[in-house]
Nucleic acid binder design. Sequence first.
DNA 1: GTCTATATGTTGATAGAC
DNA 2: GTCTATCAACATATAGAC
Lengths: 214, 214
Amino acid sequence: MLGAHYRPGMSSTPAEPQSRPARDRRSPYNLDELLEVVAHEFLERGYDATSMEDLSRATGRTKSSIYHHVSGKEELLRLAVARALDALFAVLDEEQDRQGPAVERLERVVRGSARVLVAELPYVTLLLRVRGNTEGEREALSRRREFDKRLSALVGDAIREGDVRADLDPRLVTRLLFGMVNSLVEWFRPGGAHDRQEVEDALVALAFDGLRPR
Amino acid sequence: MLGAHYRPGMSSTPAEPQSRPARDRRSPYNLDELLEVVAHEFLERGYDATSMEDLSRATGRTKSSIYHHVSGKEELLRLAVARALDALFAVLDEEQDRQGPAVERLERVVRGSARVLVAELPYVTLLLRVRGNTEGEREALSRRREFDKRLSALVGDAIREGDVRADLDPRLVTRLLFGMVNSLVEWFRPGGAHDRQEVEDALVALAFDGLRPR
DNA sequence: GTCTATATGTTGATAGAC
DNA sequence: GTCTATCAACATATAGAC
């Protein structure tokens, strides 16, 4: 049965003496390109189930060559999730010192987050799967909590200004709202059934006006 | 720093010759109890990062003893996620042959799903993290897709009956709605800041009526 | 049903030539 | 900056006594 009991490292060509890449996918060294391939591999099998051998194959370089550029597997994850966090914070920072009702800033943050999720899909997906096993992951979680706190404050402002219903706890609302936004990473794929704009609009429509026709 | 750089298997007592349990947590063999501990361990570190050695320690049994009852680590995951799937399908099956408007059945399914998520939190969380690495995981994903299909049909019915807005794609709405529901597993903890009923009500309020005051 | 002991392979990472 | 070769630690899983 195809793929049954497949485990990373259970190479299909065990005769191969070492980690020689199957084909030449190399290009002049470039961290961005390396991270792109690495993130893809981490997503496909999960971080822990992906071996440096897998990364070697996927990047068309030997393990040693990868170790020449980064300290190890953990740093690769750290670099990938930092990319996601930087992009997400950029959205918040842009709205931070803007004028206007909080509810409008909130809507723009929802749209901006959705756009970042789509634009940086692999990196954000990795970020959302981080569990805090290592120091690097715990730092990422800490930055995520800071992000969530600022979101919560924004929702709180919108409630106080009377543009968001006041019968629900702001922290609870924030969690559910961005739980919905973040769930995009579970199914959204570029070129899939729904395009970016349609998803963004549906997200805002559902979040602000709900399922029932008005 | 407590737990810094902790990795499974990096035992804090490396002098220990073998997998002897630190304390006696054993009880007459019981699959339910075993699964409960196992699910907890899988959640804490992730499935791949949890070794049989970790499970041995956590259950107060040796690895061999665990292998006496199950074929291996993969079967433990299979049993755990099957539990979640059975509970979720039970919710749908209960509504399946009920009368009344689809929108009311949809609300009950949302509430029922949220209740299952909370009641079977570890198992559902594991289910939602399954990526399809092994045959057992792929079977779980297949059952999940079947579940999502039935949800989508229910949303479609509610739209046709005019009780859910018709300007949004039913599949897209289903994904966002249950993305929000499923996001509970990321933060809900029994005894935490919010209780089950509050969360359930907020979920339904947000889903059906949205953030804006009516 | 639990244990001790061990087989067998993979893992992340390093040494050192080119 | 890439390679070949290799390591020590750890993984899943099994054998067989009690």
